[in-house]
Design a protein around this nucleic acid. Sequence first.
DNA 1: CTCCTTCCCGAAAACGTTTAAGTAAATATT
DNA 2: AATATTTACTTAAACGTTTTCGGGAAGGAG
Lengths: 375, 375
Amino acid sequence: MPATLKDIAQALGLSLATVSKALADSPEISPETKEKVWAMAQALHYHPNLVARGLRSRRSRTIGVIVDNVSSEFGSLVVAGIQDELLRCGYQMLLISAEKRPEQEKAGLAMLLERAVDGLILADTWHHSVETLPSEVTERNVPVVFVNRRVSIVGVDFVGPDDYYGAYLATEHLIGHGHRRIAHIAGPSGWQATDDRIRGYQCALKDYGLVYDPDLIIHGDWDLPSGYAAAKQLLSRDEPPTAIFVGNDVMAAGVLDAARECGLSLPHDLAIVGYDDREIACFLRPALTTVELPMYDMGLTAAMLLIDRLVRSRAEPVAVAVRGRLVYRASCGSHSLQDEGYAYRRWQARGGHTRSQKGYSGPVPIVEPSLNALQ
Amino acid sequence: MPATLKDIAQALGLSLATVSKALADSPEISPETKEKVWAMAQALHYHPNLVARGLRSRRSRTIGVIVDNVSSEFGSLVVAGIQDELLRCGYQMLLISAEKRPEQEKAGLAMLLERAVDGLILADTWHHSVETLPSEVTERNVPVVFVNRRVSIVGVDFVGPDDYYGAYLATEHLIGHGHRRIAHIAGPSGWQATDDRIRGYQCALKDYGLVYDPDLIIHGDWDLPSGYAAAKQLLSRDEPPTAIFVGNDVMAAGVLDAARECGLSLPHDLAIVGYDDREIACFLRPALTTVELPMYDMGLTAAMLLIDRLVRSRAEPVAVAVRGRLVYRASCGSHSLQDEGYAYRRWQARGGHTRSQKGYSGPVPIVEPSLNALQ
DNA sequence: CTCCTTCCCGAAAACGTTTAAGTAAATATT
DNA sequence: AATATTTACTTAAACGTTTTCGGGAAGGAG
């Protein structure tokens, strides 16, 4: 049985309240008494019981996190970002992986509330009801931050990627390499990411005076075979593109398969830029130039927003778009090929995925963050 | 403010104790009263305050998990396995990612204990003191399970992979394809995994009557360039191997680079088996036949062992070795190449990584689990 | 009619903490 | 010198449960 306040109080002949206040460094306790209490706490290896403290103070300093899938590259990175920021601020994380099951999502939410979490981060989830939060969470008024899934619930914060910006970067990069006929293999329609990336692509074309040919956009389903099929179709045309901006890295892998099958030499005959900066991008040959989807930073930002609400009790909701950078590898031709085998080592050296604390400095309400920044 | 037991009691004119016992379905409450209490609890949206319950009952039904790195493929899979089993048993998970920082590991452990976790799972971590657990955890006697990092602490459970078995599987598979000269690119010496995989490789050679040539083992450092260099060396010999069992998938990617550079046609000129079944194995060309490192199952098993201790208060420690299976892809030649682009889709279809509840049925003390099973 | 069970239920303590309110002595103010 | 304020501490209530103990009522046995 670990030491409690009572043990310290008895050992020193003081009252419980005095010890409690001394440990909290309250001004109404004399310096000498504080010293004695601190010394005794040290001697008895006292550690506060956060359960009891949470019961009394009604603040548990734990945050509930529901993520769609911890074991995915995206989910785990969001979690890593959240945890780093929470730990820095003395909070801890109760984690639930919903595994795309709405009922587990709902049950998990209830369990987190029963554990009296101070706040909630819902990452890439919340499939069952987009319109409303359960009454339990609203009436307890625990703050909520949504990550990567825009919802139309009033009063909650949102953190998402700036896909518009990222797609602009990718397309601009291809244009800068002299390409004039650039195709885009997009995600399935109906996705925010698909739309934003198409818009960024179109905007870059326009800004550099290239004509936008709707036939150069083909929709895939984010999966490898769809990228393969789309590339096959593009490359079999009379006037095939010289470059393809692919909506994600997995489809880009399919594009590489198709290009290889067509006997094309990459990146000379065809330049490719992916999206996401998945780990696989370093292992494809040629290694894939791609736009980073800043999942770690998004998690970090979500935690910052939540703690901002908790400690500064900010009221007005904000929406933040986090930007990823373009990661240069061999699939665009700008890099020398000789050291591309070392791409993974470099990827790891910079901490695997980004660990920089960029993209967010204080909560600023942004409605359409990418537009004003780009134009 | 959410409803409490007192609210229910007042609404029904009952005492607090009666309501508490009714909700716990205690036999000393009449069925009629129980019905009324349950109905009222439903009506008032009552949810128990687990913080208060934890304070009183001294059991929080939360498990502390410290993992080396959540954002790695391994770490996130362990976490997923742990969370699935914990959730099934009504437990929740406080997660800390130590990021290879011993001080964060130590601080995190202290924080978890302050939160009165019922048990601890230490996955791939515990770098600072292998010999002893801190006195706080022993004197509170919270059970501990170590995952993937064997420690010489008495009385704690251990879950690890059966690398000996996996390496045997891989080598046996190459032998079955007719290869007689099989090299092994091992991990750095000093690793348990390196030794076990070498021993499995040697054992398979012996069982099938092949001579073991020490020159055919080259040590790498788990990283891509080291696999590349090792393969270059092996392939430049007078009598190069016709197959290589590579100690992990990342080095195997380097082997593929080297083979491509030597103008070899895979898998005809050189067959390759990797280890880990990382996601990248599906994206390499040819897609990599590899042995699964069952991280998800290891996490699942760790949680099972912990809960077994908690609810059945098992005393004697056990060590469990979990086996992964051999995943057949193209790099060994047994598969038709035409559909290898769909490997990722199949990989996802079976749930990404393994989600089967295999490898463990009740805690059985195993000292050297692979030996007796294989022989 | 009394005694003893059995069945339900209530009173109260306990878990470890925080905090509002109270108190006695010391010091400052008029 | 009387009063007001400050200082440093204590008492006690509260947070929402669980659980031990006790007690009243009903019913059966003697």
